[in-house]
Nucleic acid binder design. Structure first.
Lengths: 336, 336
DNA sequence: TGGCGTGATGCTAGCGCTAACATAATGGCT
DNA sequence: AGCCATTATGTTAGCGCTAGCATCACGCCA
């Protein structure tokens, strides 16, 4: 029984045990061990038990790197987001990860940090791991990135937007129409001096265009646009920098809440309903936080986790509709 | 020049081009192509140029799966968090990813969803991809998970806590002492009826123990403890469920802000300083949001991204101190 | 009784790459 | 001229696993 004293996980050379070491110990060929791991039904119960025993004794952990090379299936998905911290994209990653994990897929996560050079670099790094699909927020920033993805010949899912010429599949919503919806609502509410605060990333910019176009179409003067740095909380866009404005659309809820805190300091925030607000504020994202603060935040609600789950579905089912509009909803609360 | 018309990324069989196809086209051996990719300095400039040309023509993307198998280096790190959505752990993932990405490491992300069974499963899945280290929030929930990690013989970094018997390295802070610090502060402020709201995960529970022990040591009666479900916002722990309480420590800022919104509805929230609050509220995490709401949130500040960066350092440098206490800071604002 | 389907297991080759060790070609030195 | 350090390139033998095809034993049927 001395072999029972072998330290688990340690083969003859102190390295991780391999299939064939397990096979030797169980007195079978390595392909049989492979079958026990992947298609146990094909192996006779007694043989299987013997192999399972040997695997446990040795502390065998399959090497998926070798398996992937041999089978040309990595069971992994590359996921690219601008940023994962404090962001609604985390919901999307959670959603797709929850859907893919039970299927045996691993998520390889990369961040572009809204930097085109870094995006191309991580895209190449991702592809060199031969994922079975790429799911990304938005579209590649450069032609090079786009080319890389097209040549990869794997499902590519762009999310959080509805690009006109997607590489492959799309799960998102119409950012332009979101801007339109907010402007429409504010105009109907009687607001006249609109402003937009947010980043100048592609999706934020599309929201701005919709917002501006609708304001102009309604006979209002061109709204002001304050481009915030990613690090800014939104409170930096204090009312002082937007005098005379009576309604603000923030590209995301964090900016909206930050701006509201600026309004509060300026004495321009009421605990009453939207009609009582000197300055209406509408966010985007529908963070739970928005319902907890006072006044509660009106916002464009988007389901980040549904985007993630839909993206997972799109990468799994190569046929069928490749463009899914998850829509958005204008949720009106007390801020505007 | 017909070869220039070859569709990039498509080899003879429509499959991705390999090293040796590039080699053939450049008229060199495949090892030379490998060197151009990995150690370009070792290759003569003209040869290098020829190889680079061939790589571009063919749209060659290195296959790291094969490279990893051959070199026994995957350049990947397994990262396990309870959840990535709406959580402070996202900062940690961002921090470590930012540090590791430039070094060529990929992050394989998995979520346990606070489920021990799922944790063991994803841990095994992670290890089968042969990452060069595992960075996780907390410690394995089961003996089995712990065994798996010990046998992997790679750096293991546990974070967000300071376990007594870590598997390998640790980057975190003392959750028990955080609870103590909050209780001390509340007692000094003259609060007498304390309560704790939050989850019953290991770290939350440690905060509770510190909080309770210090309250008892100060002669107060045992604080109440309300265990919230992960889905709860904290507002469900309305004051109605905690009558007579004059101070609450919430295990995280989200719960704290939710509870404050409950207090507001009950008319128990003031815009003034902590001394004016009928019920003091202290959170943990120092979300930016806490500074934007009114009253501003007092909290235990923890640097999630520093934890991530430190964890990355610990996995890279195998020598030296393996237990890093990043500490925490009680940040006093207006809520308590 | 011979043929053959079925279930269980094994053999062989190779996935695309790299480590480790050759081998060539060059030039400076004694 | 001969030697050897240096630079540039190549050869060989796997890494650990799986696909695809054997092989073999069995038992059932005509």
């Amino acid at each position: 029984m001395s072999s029972d004293l072998t330290e688990p996980g340690t083969g003859p050379s102190g390295a991780a045990p391999t299939l064939s070491e397990v096979a030797k110990r169980a007195g079978v060929s390595s392909i049989t061990v492979s079958r026990v791991v992947r298609m146990p039904d094909l192996v006779a119960p007694e043989t299987r038990a013997r192999v399972e025993r040997a695997m446990r004794d040795l502390g065998y952990v399959p090497n998926l790197v070798a398996g992937a090379l041999a089978s040309a299936r990595t069971n992994s998905v590359g996921v690219l987001v601008p940023t994962i911290a404090n962001s609604i994209f985390a919901d999307t990653v959670q959603g797709l990860s929850d859907k893919l994990e039970p299927l045996g897929f691993s998520v390889i996560l990369a961040q572009s940090r809204y930097d085109a050079v870094r995006e191309d670099r991580v895209l190449a790094a991702l592809l060199s791991r031969r994922p079975e699909a790429i799911i990304m927020v938005g579209s590649p920033a450069t032609e090079e990135g786009s080319r890389l993805l097209r040549n990869a010949r794997i499902p590519i899912v762009e999310t959080w937007d509805l690009p006109a010429n997607p590489i492959d599949a799309v799960a998102g919503f119409d950012n332009y129409q979101a801007g339109v919806a907010v402007a429409k609502h504010l105009v109907a509410q009687g607001r006249r001096q609109l402003a937009f605060i947010g980043g100048d990333d592609p999706r934020g910019t599309r929201r701005w265009f919709g917002f501006r176009d609708e304001a102009l179409a309604s006979g209002l003067s061109e709204p002001r646009r304050l481009i915030l740095d990613r690090k800014d909380s939104g409170s930096v866009a204090a009312h002082a920098r937007l005098p005379d404005v009576d309604a603000v659309f923030a590209a995301n809820d964090a900016h909206a809440i930050g701006f509201m805190s600026g309004l509060r300091k300026a004495g321009l925030l009421r605990d009453g309903p939207a009609s009582a607000q000197p300055v209406a504020v509408i966010g985007l994202g529908d963070l739970e936080m928005g319902q907890l603060i006072s006044p509660t935040l009106s916002t464009i609600s988007v389901h980040g986790d549904a985007i993630g789950r839909t993206a997972a579905t799109l990468m799994l089912e190569r046929g069928g509709e490749r463009r899914i509009d998850l829509g958005f909803e204008l949720v009106l609360r007390d801020s505007g």
